[in-house]
Amino acid sequence: MSDLIVFVTLLGLGYFFGRIAEKKHYKSIIKREKQYRDILAISSRILPVSSTPMEACLVAGSVVVSVDYFKRFLSGLRALIGGRVIAYESLLDRARREAVLRMKKQARDLNANMVFNIKFETSSISKNARGGIGSVEVLVYGTALSPVK
């Protein structure tokens, strides 16, 4: 009986706090995306033809984000019947966008207006461990180009 109470409490906590955290995060992501829109992030390897010398520097952004208890429970249920796991989709979306924003922030600090050759790297931390953590790491990196002073 006490097990059930703990379980339901955890579910409730996860549901409420997880929702609040996600809403807040999305709000801040959208706000900052507007702010950094003028920095072009391009995944192509080839540079546009230009004669002006540029300064190149590696920039990277990374984030580790975890799901809440409620969503983990949902995804467990989903694993029984198959299909889209919406609970995890939003997690990955948030992580990627946040990582890109952090990379752009670094580029802004370097006074760059372009980031080239962007690569994404996703890995899960301590996967499948018992009582393990349903969390992902997203790393994004690229080359920031700024005009030579």
Partner: peptide
């Protein structure tokens, strides 16, 4: 893991 969100330490 219960509340969700970023793991700043990691």
């Amino acid at each position: 893991n219960i509340f969700g969100g970023e793991l700043k330490g990691y």
